[in-house]
Design a binder for these strands. Structure first.
Length: 413
RNA sequence: CGGGGCGUGGUGUCAACGGCUAGCACGAGUGGUUUGGGACCAUUUAGACAGGGUUCGAAUCCCUGCGCCCCGACCA
């Protein structure tokens, strides 16, 4: 894309009403637009990042057999009453609204009930299971206090998957497959080394522990205790001697850290299927309960975490896997040559942001650093005299001159 | 929801004693000079969150509402 046509612009000033680093950087660089507290819109660069994260999540969920659907945001009251999750006393962060005729509706904050309701049209036999259904959709939660930019909003993008199994054993197999897929996602996002499977409270879902996926960061809201050897952690909220013994962890080996919850997985047992009257017939024709699991990944929160963690004083530093573009091509008064490189790279399938604007070199460089595309290619009088174009990684100081003919093969890979 | 801070052009502003035409910078427009780190000159553009009150006079003081941020609580 030609930057002269990109309607967003980088700003020299940071927004005064944001303290959170991820929101400051993302707004300054033009990735997101703040609509109101805890509610952000995605501009072209930001949407590209979101779509890249979604693509990775989608690939890994498909990889474990997940089938993608798209549920509705508007929710009927009755199915939520069956599981006793409608009343404000039970779930206090619903957004609710009404039809003209007065019928109450909810605005989806999670989707166990509607998923069970939808699959109940199709599921009745042991032969139907196991299966996994997921969606990537905006969730709405009426948080008392939005904070930390994209890390805790009232409207946010989430991947939520639900598994349906014949029994506990089958559920455990599905569950562990999905946990493994979660780590593939985090690894591909560059967060693998600093993201821990963390035992946590199962909440009102289940008496069992749930798993949280906590990415280490000082901006995290959760206190977790990490066992470096086992690469697992336990959330402070369930840190008791009894639980440690149950989990085979030793208190003296644990190190306290701050984490951002970038995913979670729950064992739902048959709480929702039973409540919504979804059962199956086994081989003998006997009616049995269906065992469910649910699995969330905060897509927009991941974008915030990555913006927060992968940045320096000059701006963002996107991992190549989700960067809005692969290459930032900067022309310094060499537009004709740059146009050709742009065309050649694009033809080779390389995603290029081409800074063809008629602005000073300093402005181009500052903007490029702020946007944080992994590779910067500068073509200038100076680079041409040195034998080609200058190639620099955003994450490194050094640059090298390479011949134009070698550029494509290098970046294509 | 409890506590605290705040609201000045598109953006920023620890700019302005209750008093002169609301200042400066960035951005944007126009013309020109530039072209390796947000370059320069000239010129133009554009502002008090909303409503009420006090006052001869309010950006400034008071009230109400709305909004934003932070701490805490909450967080399926």
């Amino acid at each position: 894309m030609k930057q002269s046509r990109l309607f967003t612009k980088t700003s020299k000033t940071v927004p005064a009403d944001e303290v959170s680093k991820n929101a400051q950087l993302l707004i300054q660089a033009g990735f997101i637009h703040k609509e109101m507290a805890g509610v952000y819109a995605y501009m072209p660069l930001g949407l590209r990042v979101i779509e890249n994260i979604k693509r990775i999540v989608r690939e890994e969920m498909n990889g474990v057999g997940g089938q993608e659907v798209l549920m509705t945001t508007l929710q009927p009251k009755d199915i939520w009453e069956k599981t006793d999750r409608w009343s404000d006393a039970k779930v206090d962060n619903w957004f609710k609204t009404k039809l003209v005729n007065g019928t109450e509706l909810g605005v989806g904050l999670t989707h166990e009930e509607p998923i069970v309701d939808a699959v109940s049209n199709y599921v009745s036999s042991y032969k139907d299971m196991p299966f996994a259904v997921y969606q990537i959709q905006n969730k709405f939660r009426n948080e008392l206090r939005a904070k930390s930019g994209l890390l805790r909003g009232r409207e946010f993008l989430m991947k939520d998957m639900y598994t349906f199994c014949r029994d506990q054993k089958q559920h455990e197999e599905e569950y562990e497959k999905i946990v493994a897929a979660y780590f593939k996602v985090y690894t591909r996002l560059g967060l693998g080394d600093i993201t821990y499977r963390t035992y946590a409270d199962g909440g009102i879902f289940t008496p069992r522990f749930s798993d949280e996926f906590q990415t280490l960061s000082e901006v995290g809201e959760d206190n977790i205790y990490v066992d470096e050897d086992k690469k697992i952690a336990i959330n402070e909220e369930i840190l008791t001697d009894e639980n440690l013994a149950k989990l085979g962890l030793e208190r003296k080996k644990l190190v306290q850290k701050k984490g951002v919850e970038v995913g979670n997985t729950f064992h739902l047992e048959s709480k929702y299927t039973d409540a919504l009257d979804l059962y199956y017939n086994d081989e003998k024709g006997e009616k049995k309960s269906i065992i469910m699991g649910c699995y969330g990944i905060g897509v927009s929160r991941l974008m915030g975490v990555i913006a927060e963690l992968f940045a320096d004083e000059k701006g963002l530093m996107w991992p190549a896997s989700i960067a809005p573009f692969a290459v930032h091509l900067v022309s310094l008064g060499q537009d004709e040559q740059a146009e050709k490189i742009y065309a050649d790279l694009s033809a080779a399938g390389v995603e290029v942001l081409f800074d063809d604007r008629d602005v000073s070199a300093g402005e181009k460089f500052a903007g490029s650093d702020l946007i944080g595309i992994p590779y910067r290619v500068v073509i200038s009088k100076k680079s041409l005299e040195a034998g080609g174009v200058e190639l620099k990684k955003r994450s490194e100081q050094a640059n090298e001159i390479i011949a134009i003919k070698d550029l494509i093969s290098l970046l294509k890979k």
